[in-house]
Amino acid sequence: MSEALLEVKGLKKHFETKKGMLHAIDGVDFAIREGETLGLVGESGCGKSTTGRAILRLHEPSSGQVLYRGEDVTRLSPARMKAMRRRMQIVFQDPYSSLNPRLPVAELIAEPLRVNRVYARKPEEAERVAAVMELVGLEARLIDSYPHELDGGRRQRIGIARALSVEPEFVVLDEPVSALDVCIQAQILNLMAELQRKLGLTYLFISHNLSVVKHVSDRIAVMYLGKIVELSDYKSIFVEPLHPYTQALLSAIPTTRPERRKERIILEGDVPSPIEPSPGCRFCGRCRYRRERCAAETPELREVGAGRFVACHYYDALGEKKGN
């Protein structure tokens, strides 16, 4: 395995609200190896998008480190951060609101090139724009179109072209397909896989859709209420989920073979508020295996097997309990 391209250590992002401090991300650790795709799943509001944005400092992290090839991104000066942005890009969820409606396709794609003064001469820039458009499968004739004239799939291709125009190594994909039709989702996912192969990209793939994440990820991190509860390679997570939340999540995936359906775990109650959360395990109020220690002590993410991490005090006791 190649070394880590990006390492996130103890990343926190708190927002001040009128009701108190909102812990959007509360100490997240993971590493992404060069060339791999790390899937980040969780329900809405769990902080997965905030994590992606905090890594790129679109939201300034409250504390923690983001090491990119060993360099702490969170401490870079504005000038060096600007240079760093060429290496880390993002594709947004909504291709309708992520494109400036006043700019035609060519300007949208050229914008990062201009901001970073990549090319001194216009013809070179135009050539690069044309090359990126071809790379993502946008017809050259669309160069003067405006975003509102195009369908969701093409718009998302513009978003991808914009991110790739400056030749980044690492791309945060923030729910890149969840606003698209199912058939276009597949096209975009395949495009992204192809681009990763061709350009050697590293992805952080954020999604709430387990089947999409399963399709694209090498490893998967499951997030719940601002914390990562489980992180493993994609097979282990689907075959043998360790954290009670992951188990519940997986049991909710619809199956095409009802006769082989496993026990469905129905969670009780709601996700607790992320504003001034109580100490202890975040999941403890809804966990069917909870014990006293869970409410008192926050379980840390620890390695429990080769490349498998889980944040649960009693993950190994869960099997017995289930047997009872």
């Binding site: 600007k82 993002i90 947004f92 969820q93 609101s97 992520s98 494109l99 914008e111 990062p112 901001v115």
Partner: peptide
């Protein structure tokens, strides 16, 4: 809007 964030991400 997200396109403002996109502009920021571009530097």
């Amino acid at each position: 809007r997200e396109y403002i964030e996109a502009a920021r991400a571009a530097g």
